[in-house]
Design a protein around this nucleic acid. Structure first.
Length: 276
DNA sequence: CTTGTGCCCTGACCGC
DNA sequence: TGCGGTCAGGGCACAA
């Protein structure tokens, strides 16, 4: 469900909510998100540990704990993290619960079970495939040279390259569409046909969109919520994703499929040439 | 090597 | 009310 702006929003609110807290207990209701780590090992390595810091890598959260352990959390399509009071009961599909010594708790809920919560040693974190396969971060700036390097040797649509986590990490279906619109470029354009200047335009558009989305607390289409239950407000600012008419020129939008994902674009604002 | 297609899952929504 | 089909902020395994 969440892309970079939503994960960044969750990361920030988690920091204020749980950093410094001591883990008193860990409850595992479903082992699939643990990805093969034994439930008792998962619990024993965390109970008694303190949450030291929280980072984000692309769409993943890294919860650093004392004892050189780290949780790698990916929410995929339907995952949520919620900070709750001691008396609150988890909803259905809450697969993991962390109970802190002050009574507060953290719920990991994921109806579709695509997400994961992987426990790793801090020392081997960077060798893990979930981390070392990731491309560059698009914030604070997206390096045009890196996008160019990836773009010149593929006929894939530019949107597919933007969503390729091995090239750039954090951009998903909503923001890829919004970025292509902001840049005035047709998302179907074969990447290798774009000029360096056009790729530069995309790279400058990317942080503009992502920063605005973070400022709005992310995008809530149906069920995304931050850890405090608040919805993101960037849905109000979307120009193309999920829309019928272009947010800039009001033209009727076109849709297509790229990488099997529905793609929205404006035939007037977004030309294959990138010119308007 | 690259690229496209299922598939993992549940739930919401729509038309009949 | 129910039932089937479609779709969903992601990404992996596999085939061509």
């Amino acid at each position: 469900m969440p892309e970079l702006p939503e994960v960044e929003t969750i990361c920030r609110s988690l920091r204020t909510a749980i950093v410094g807290k001591m883990i008193k207990d860990v409850i595992v209701n479903h082992e699939k998100p643990l990805r093969g780590i034994d439930t008792s090992v998962f619990r024993q390595h965390q109970i008694g540990k303190k949450v030291v810091s929280i980072d984000r890598r692309g769409k993943q959260l890294l919860v650093n704990m004392s004892g050189k352990m780290v949780l790698i959390i990916h929410l995929k399509m339907s995952g949520t993290l919620t900070v709750a009071e001691a008396w609150e009961q988890p909803q259905k599909h809450t697969h993991c619960i962390w109970k802190f010594s002050d009574g507060s708790q953290l719920f990991f809920r994921d109806p579709r079970r695509f997400g994961y919560v992987i426990l790793s040693d801090s020392s081997s974190l960077n060798e893990r495939p979930e981390i070392n396969s990731l491309g560059i971060e698009p914030l604070p700036i997206l390096d045009t040279a890196v996008l160019h390097e990836a773009a010149v040797r593929t006929k894939r649509p530019i949107k597919a390259v933007l969503m390729d986590q091995r090239v750039v990490t954090g951009i998903g279906n909503i923001y890829a569409d919004e970025i292509c619109h902001e840049a005035g470029i047709d998302p179907m354009t074969p990447a290798e046909t774009l000029t360096y200047a056009q790729l530069g335009k995309i790279c400058r558009s990317t942080p503009i969109i992502l920063r605005a989305a973070i400022d709005a607390g992310g995008t809530t289409i149906r069920d995304y919520k931050s850890t405090d239950g608040r919805q993101g407000k960037y849905a109000l600012k979307l120009k193309v994703y999920g829309k019928q008419d272009c947010g800039s020129c009001r033209s009727r939008l076109h849709t297509s499929k790229i990488n099997g994902r529905t793609t929205y674009y404006c035939p007037k604002c977004q030309k294959p040439s990138g010119r308007q």
